[in-house]
Nucleic acid binder design. Structure first.
Lengths: 119, 119
DNA sequence: CTGAATCCAATAGGATACTG
DNA sequence: CAGTATCCTATTGGATTCAG
């Protein structure tokens, strides 16, 4: 986002603003942060994530992993053993995102925003 | 979030993880990023936001402003003129969040994630 | 073990109209 | 100007069950 002097009245720079909003909405979905963090912390198997993100259902975990894969943040690798092993690992982009996320996470950790009900 | 060696199997550090997830979900809601940015860019009046965030409805704008106020990220000030003026301005915390958000925004601007449909 | 399928309840958000 | 109220639909996410 560019930083022109405050001129209320002009629309927000669409190019950067929209991309940021899309990203925020994507990683702001329920459990996504935790799944991302689990990947960053070394989770690889489906069961790893399931254990490291307690409370998430299989359905949502599967969905979140697909979304993250679709966004190019994690990679799905199939190891043809018997039974097959599936590995989910952060991509370079995923690692980069985690880095970019650190200041926000640090900020959020210091400021105890509020309970889960924003409304 | 702390960075211990990868030990898949233990739960994620709840203290920081949950806070981060709550924060991410809060600012990941639709329009929230844009509203926050508008505040950062100098919007103060309700109409300012309305113009700077094209597409948002009055209902959602009102709701987002309330949420951000509730989170302590913006302040609502009533100026008792006639008619009354209402000002919405970033708090110190809000400004701090924007700072913490910069790396993420920069990252998102460089990486053109995808269209709006993650599923 | 790694999911996919289904069903259901809750929520979010868009559109519109109206008010002090 | 600064919202609120209402209605309506789409989307979300939880729970459970089934399958390769």
């Amino acid at each position: 986002m560019k930083s022109s002097p405050p001129l209320p009245g002009d629309e927000l720079d669409p190019e950067a603003c929209i991309k940021s909003q899309v990203l925020l909405e994507a990683i702001g979905r329920r459990w996504t942060g935790a799944v991302l963090l689990a990947a960053h912390r070394g989770a690889t198997r489906f069961g790893d994530y399931r254990r490291m993100v307690p409370g998430i259902s299989d359905r949502l975990l599967s969905q979140r992993l697909k979304e993250l894969e679709h966004m190019g943040l994690i990679e799905r690798e199939v190891i043809p053993t018997t039974p097959v092993q599936i590995l989910y690992r952060p991509t370079k982009d995923g690692a980069g995102l985690m880095t970019a996320l650190q200041p926000l996470i640090a900020w959020g950790t210091r400021h105890f925003i509020l309970d889960g009900s924003p409304a």
